[in-house]
Design a protein around this nucleic acid. Structure first.
Lengths: 258, 258
DNA sequence: CTCAATTTGTTCGTATGTATG
DNA sequence: ACATACATACGAACAAATTGA
């Protein structure tokens, strides 16, 4: 019990799940390679300071997930399994957003009118008078990877309700030639799934998600498009070149660094 | 038990923790505002389909965290607590990286030589011959918010070992005038804390983190700087304007969208 | 072939945690 | 607050399969 209480100080999640999470990551990040024999139960026992049975429970979870295989008398091995990396890069420019809507399956699951929209940050424009909620789920290879809760300016929604109810909203908006998007702010944070999101994404309640707050502001400063998008955490990645278009950087610049 | 097994299909984390996570997010994201009376236990009971005691356990956790206050006969209220938003924006350009190293406290916790470095993606240059591991922790307001595992090309490390052991590496590198950084790739993903990271960040084992893989490539194509940075998930946020420097966007562009 | 060492698999007893009604 | 059922975790012992000496 001495061990237990010490570890439980920081997380009340069952120990075998904590251990399983760490081992799962070691496999996914390639620290434990495919086909490789991993540490023995006794070594893992020592490393994590837990009982034998607890390690076995963790291994059992990863076995069920097809990540590990155990052979009595020989050891535990990382499975050679077909790679199905469903992860993709998050989007950082407007045209890619439009493109991605074309390449993924979008299923509208709900439309509600007169809904209070998510709060806007000080620089995210002024709220529209009324919003219509369009909720949809994005699928990739048949599995859901994101839930979109879009609060669309009702004035715009009513210009083509049938279209908005059927397909992705952004292309429809961009087809309206009197609309000018002055700003498109995207804010990414880490959140946890609420009951609706967990249900639609087929994940556990309270599991971490990547939350994207996307706000489009028109030329009058109105936030006509105000969306919260929840991505399954393993499905997203974000890459950037810090040098951007400034070109290579030469050392010795600190003399004038005030 | 009927309820229980249904929910446990997707997550084996104790129910009261799942419920607590969702309620914590409602407070943190401002859906439940400060001072507001939240739903009654009975309503929450119905919403989450769990027993009364389970809701009470969740509330107790948030009470311990100072997020909620219960008053017998009146209800449960969101605490008016001092805002200490320790979150900050992730960095997307090179100069900001340099700046941020100056404004945060960095504590070097470990130096190890001849360590195998993290794997490089195909376009992340060729590995250096040998790397030296510099591990440090970044603090903000006295609390740790990130662990940096930097694998530095040993050839560069040995040009000024004492300096590298004491202060942040990047400014030291940028003071060497014969070094040219041709690329600086940053990749963000969601991971979970391993035992060392959990220990240094004072978080639970297996809790989600924002992982940043940062690779600097010199003019010869060598990955001289290869770092894995683990941020506490609540401490980071990432903002961007999708329109960037392309200016406002006018509708009606789809005619030529092949 | 046998033996010993290694490694996973199984079981028991006990204490505490979780969830229902 | 109580009674009940099941889950989690420990420690220890023993069984079964594999390997190499």
């Amino acid at each position: 019990m001495s061990k237990l209480t010490a570890i439980y100080d920081r997380s009340r999640v069952p120990l075998y799940l904590q251990v399983a999470s760490v081992m799962r990551q070691r496999i996914q990040k390639g620290y434990w390679k495919e086909g490789q024999k991993i540490s023995t139960l006794e070594e893992l026992e020592a490393e994590f300071s837990v009982a034998r049975v607890t390690i076995r429970q963790a291994v059992e979870i990863l076995r069920d997930e097809g990540l590990l295989e155990s052979l009595q008398g020989r050891g535990t091995f990382v499975s050679n399994r077909p790679k199905n990396s469903r992860s993709f890069d998050l989007i950082t420019d407007f045209d890619s957003v439009l493109d991605s809507l074309q390449s993924n399956v979008v299923k509208r699951v709900e439309v509600k009118e007169h809904r209070p929209a998510p709060l806007l940050a000080p620089d995210e424009g002024t709220p529209a008078e009324d919003y219509t909620l369009l909720r949809s789920v994005q699928y990739n290879e048949g599995a859901p990877f994101s839930v979109v809760n879009l609060f669309l300016d009702t004035q715009i929604f009513e210009r083509d309700p049938e279209q908005f109810k059927r397909v992705a909203a952004l292309p429809v908006i961009m087809d309206m030639d009197d609309i000018v998007i002055a700003h498109a702010y995207q804010t990414l944070t880490i959140g946890v799934s609420d009951p609706e999101t967990a249900d639609l994404l087929k994940i556990g309640l309270g599991e971490p998600t990547v939350d994207c707050h996307l706000v489009l502001i028109d030329d009058k400063g109105t936030a006509i498009y105000n969306a919260n998008i929840h991505y399954i955490k393993d499905c997203v990645r974000f890459r950037t070149d810090l040098l951007g278009n400034t070109g290579p950087r030469r050392g010795g610049r600190s003399k004038k660094s005030k």
